[in-house]
Write a protein that binds this DNA or RNA. Structure first.
Lengths: 146, 146
DNA sequence: CTTCAATTTAACAATCATTACAAATACAAA
DNA sequence: TTTGTATTTGTAATGATTGTTAAATTGAAG
């Protein structure tokens, strides 16, 4: 077995998730693809690795990972659920043009409000939207052409 | 015509939206219901006012309002789109128990990151999740019963 | 290596929110 | 009133997600 996969296997075993081929593949995919993929992207890309793969399995696996606190659901856009391997807290920026989601570091701990005294805050999400540098260039050059 | 509705009509006319009965009703609903309703909630509540109302109209109207910058889509949860009348910038807290969404004031302008130099930031959203004071009480009393 | 029970996967059907579309209606200008 | 345009409605289509169930796989025990 690929030594990288071996590590992922033990990582899953440590949190009491049986390391099936599918689960290890999804975990490996998430670790190596920082672009916050949708279920469909994961499904399509992993089909070349596991031809019999079912979409339901992706959903089941991701649910399991979310439950275990390994993965976080991003709801930055209303029509597509995206998944994020949990590392340090960070903010997300989504480009309205190319739809890429970028991470950026942000001190979430310092974000507080007196109005939330008495509330138990479990989770904090910061979503920015706009246009990334690459697409800004394209938009400007399109404009020049007109 | 109700003088309140009259005001809403002119407000819509000012931004070049023809003030149909349905549109004014939706706007009125959003202004008087701060709980960030789903399409379904708006639809069900307004049926008593406009019996022939269609859900498509709610969608069309909200799309129009979003386009006009009157309303903002909240994507705090992945399976339900919620709508927010735009006032001053604020954060949102969603209670995982009762699913209510609370506003809280937050200085979004000061939230910046050097990593986003070169990015054009158009929109900022801050979503907190957890348990609201009321539900915290219920959870504690449930615990005592066991 | 076999057997058995439990877990996991895969395929398909069902659901639900949203969108697309066409016909009916309302509205404004002439 | 008539005509043309915008709006609403009802229904059908779409697409992501969930539910169900049987088959496949796994792991443990003998």
């Amino acid at each position: 077995m690929n030594p990288l996969y071996k590590n992922l296997s033990t990582e899953l075993e440590n949190i009491n998730i049986r390391p099936s081929i599918q689960r290890v593949a999804v975990l490996n995919y998430l670790i190596n693809n920082f672009f916050h993929p949708t279920v469909d992207q994961i499904y399509k890309d992993l089909q070349s690795v596991i031809p019999t793969l079912s979409k339901t399995t992706i959903y089941n696996t991701l649910d399991l990972f979310v439950e275990a606190g390994l993965v976080k659901i991003l709801t930055i856009e209303d029509n597509e659920t995206r998944y994020d391997i949990i590392t340090e807290p960070h903010g997300h920026f989504k480009c309205n043009e190319c739809r890429t989601i970028f991470n950026f570091t942000l001190d979430l701990d310092s974000m507080e409000s007196e109005e939330l005294n008495g509330f138990k805050v479990i989770d904090k999400d910061v979503y920015f939207k706009g246009v990334c540098p690459k697409c800004l260039l394209n938009i400007n050059s399109d404009f020049r052409k007109e």
